[in-house]
Simulated assay, not measured.
Amino acid sequence: MQIDWSKLFSYINGFADRKTIEEVESWREKDSRNEEFYRRTRDYYANSPTRNESFSEGQLDILYKKMLKSKRGRKRRALWQRTTVAASVILLLSAGVWWYYTGNMHDESKAHVPVHAAEVIIITESGDKFTAKQLDSGIARQVADNKLEYSARENTSEEDAARVEKQVPRHTIIVPRGKTFELVLADGTFVLLGPSSELTYPVQFDSCSTREVTLRGEAYFEVTKSSNRFAVNTERMKLQVYGTTFNVFAREKMPVEAVLVEGRVGITPENGTEETILHPGDMYSIDEAGDIKVMQVDLAEYKAKRNGYVLFNGKTIEQIVRSLELYYDVDFVHEGVVPDTREYVFSVKRTSSLREVLDVIVSVADVKFVIDGKEVEITRK
């Protein structure tokens, strides 16, 4: 192709440097067909900025050359309707070490959600299923496409005494692969649920008992301070806090982990009685055999998550793509071992498209990717 995709993309979205601007404008002036292609690319990204995962750049080059050979505008327009443009921009913060993608070039609020991804579902105790939009507005309200907020209430001793004899209704929220979801519980506790995660929780809290939830998957908690403890149950451990910030990772066939970001938390193994107290920066890990480890970790990864980023802090390509499978609902495949075993540090906006994330990896690693629907093949460059 006569113009680099990333340069054209940065020019269209208004963050190109002077040299790139001059190069793109010179390219536009060379041929009327270049100008036409530019206008269609600009309009395409304005109307649908995230549909760029279907083609490799090699395929796009072929389509572009076909368009240049076309003599009729109608034929070119028909071709354009079948074309999706893959391009991204990378901001280098530290050569080969720290890459930071701001994600502010254009609105991609749903870029990480596959077109046919399942909905986030809320299941009531009676077994009824609702989406966030369908849930009774008297119980909770949807405050954003990916955020649900439960109604707070004033606790009174009379109400609480009456509720001792009555079980508080509980909901279960299920977040599928390819999505994340924010939840504000009735006590004001904020929960950021990761892809392929499930949380069970009471629709209201009272002052007579522990605030208790059950997690499968991954979640980031900011617990509202209260005289009552807040407890998180997982398959292998129970966390208890009064008010604090922490991240819990509880997926099948993997060690269950809890990382304390702020405050103080106590953890008890499922089949044990001894409580371990964590301090900020501590990670508690327990594997399938019941072996427990406590170590200090860098909190940047967890703070980035709260701010809308996914940070890979010293991760191999193998570890990175396993996380991307959850966030983008795709499967990465490769023959044998991934050739690049070095560790990388970079972050991407959680709403970035898959193509953009892969472009960042390709720029620093000795691998390349071919996207075919929901399957991504990894090969050596």
Rank of each mutant, 00 (worst) to 15 (best):
F190V: 04
Q167S: 12
G73F: 09
E257R: 04
E149G: 03
F369C: 07
Q240G: 02
S6L: 09
R342F: 06
Q240V: 06
K305G: 00
S353T: 12
E35D: 12
T214D: 14
I267C: 06
A16P: 12
A117S: 15
A250P: 02
Y44A: 10
N104Q: 10
L92N: 02
V164K: 06
E119P: 01
V321W: 00
L183G: 04
L260I: 03
V89I: 09
L324Y: 05
A16D: 13
E218T: 01
V232C: 12
T189V: 01
I277S: 10
E212K: 08
R264I: 09
Q204Y: 04
D31P: 05
R322M: 14
V345D: 13
S26A: 13
E23T: 10
F181D: 12
V203K: 03
S353M: 13
H112E: 09
V213M: 04
K30M: 06
R141C: 10
R82L: 13
Q134L: 05
V297M: 11
Y38M: 11
L354S: 08
A46H: 03
S56Y: 07
Y38P: 00
D136T: 02
F37D: 12
V24A: 13
T224N: 11
P339G: 08
D4W: 03
Q142S: 00
F190K: 13
R251I: 09
A140Q: 05
Y150R: 08
N52D: 13
V370E: 06
V362H: 05
S94P: 07
N247W: 07
V241M: 14
G263Q: 08
T131S: 15
K110W: 06
Q204C: 03
P202A: 00
M67K: 11
R141M: 03
E318P: 06
V357N: 09
S94M: 13
F55G: 02
N307C: 05
G336D: 05
G138F: 09
D287M: 02
I90K: 09
E158P: 00
E356T: 13
T316V: 04
Y101N: 15
V367I: 04
L92R: 08
V85H: 06
P202G: 04
M283D: 09
L260H: 08
V168S: 10
L354T: 01
A118G: 07
A117G: 08
D298H: 03
W99H: 02
R236M: 11
E36M: 15
K71C: 02
E252H: 02
V168E: 03
R163W: 14
R153C: 07
T50I: 15
L324S: 02
H106Y: 11
E318W: 02
M67F: 03
G96E: 04
E53F: 00
R236Q: 12
T102K: 15
L192T: 10
R355H: 13
Y11G: 00
K368D: 11
I286S: 05
R342G: 02
E235P: 07
E29C: 13
